[in-house]
Computed example of a mutant assay.
Amino acid sequence: MPATLRRGSRGPDVVQLQKLLNQKVVPCPNLTADGDFGPRTENAVRMFQTQQRLGVDGIVGPNTWAKLQAGGGPTSPAKPVGEPAWMQIARREIGVRETAGAAHNPRVIEYHGATSLKATTDETAWCASFVNWCLKQAGVMGTNSAAAASFVTWGKQTAPQPGAVCVIYNAAAANSSLSRSGNHVGFLVEETPNAYVLLGGNQSDSVKISNFGKGKWRLKAMRWAP
């Protein structure tokens, strides 16, 4: 079995990984098989792990390799049963990230346009802007606010399910690149015993699937569209 791979890995095993991800992930991530395990490859790994109900960490270890190397084509649908339209839209945005330096990614600025703040930089915290934008694209009214906490009372309370709008809080995250308030909002991929797995914006400065450990992050709200 090939070696364990993670972001930063390079070489022929990564080429094999990228080819398998293009075959197995639905929809196809269209990775370039260049042997460089970068953010797009990591996001594709996370999507594959989610679809295969593996632990979602973006690392290709024995369990992930075993699923990738199993025979046949894609074994999961493009979306889990019952996944809402806004979640499908959010998945298509995976890989969007802030532009380094003085420039700003126009896509992130577009997300901000879905709120009353209408920030003009990608350095302004944009997790709530991303959620509002995805909801708007799906024809659902969001909060029109760039504050993650605005979703605490939005819509209606729900049990954990894919696509739920999940608001979490970590006091230690306040005034960080992720959040000034310590609040963060994203779409729930799954809840595990130890983490909230969220698809969201402004996660490591990008749209991606990330684990938020329950040891540090407290759930404030789990909401669904009104």
Rank of each mutant, 00 (worst) to 15 (best):
E93N: 06
R40H: 11
W86Q: 02
T64N: 12
A70R: 11
L21V: 12
R97Q: 15
G71N: 07
V60G: 01
R6S: 15
N63I: 01
V26I: 08
P62W: 05
G71D: 13
G82S: 02
E83S: 09
D34I: 04
V14S: 00
D34W: 00
K24P: 09
R46A: 07
Q16P: 05
I89S: 01
T64P: 12
Q16A: 06
P62Y: 12
R91W: 09
R7N: 07
V25L: 10
L21S: 12
V96Y: 00
R7Q: 15
M87W: 11
Q52R: 15
K19D: 06
Q23A: 05
R40A: 03
Q69M: 01
G55Y: 13
F37Y: 14
V45F: 01
P80W: 14
Q52V: 06
A33L: 06
P77A: 09
V81T: 14
R10V: 05
R91Q: 04
K19I: 14
G71W: 06
R91H: 10
Q69A: 10
T75M: 15
P62S: 03
P39N: 04
V45G: 00
V45K: 01
Q16W: 12
P29M: 00
G35H: 08
P12Q: 14
D36L: 02
R53W: 12
R53V: 14
T50V: 06
R6M: 15
G38H: 10
N63F: 09
P39C: 02
L20R: 15
E98A: 13
R46Y: 10
G71F: 12
V60Q: 01
A33T: 02
Q18H: 02
F48G: 10
Q51D: 04
L31I: 01
G38D: 13
L31E: 05
G8R: 10
P27A: 04
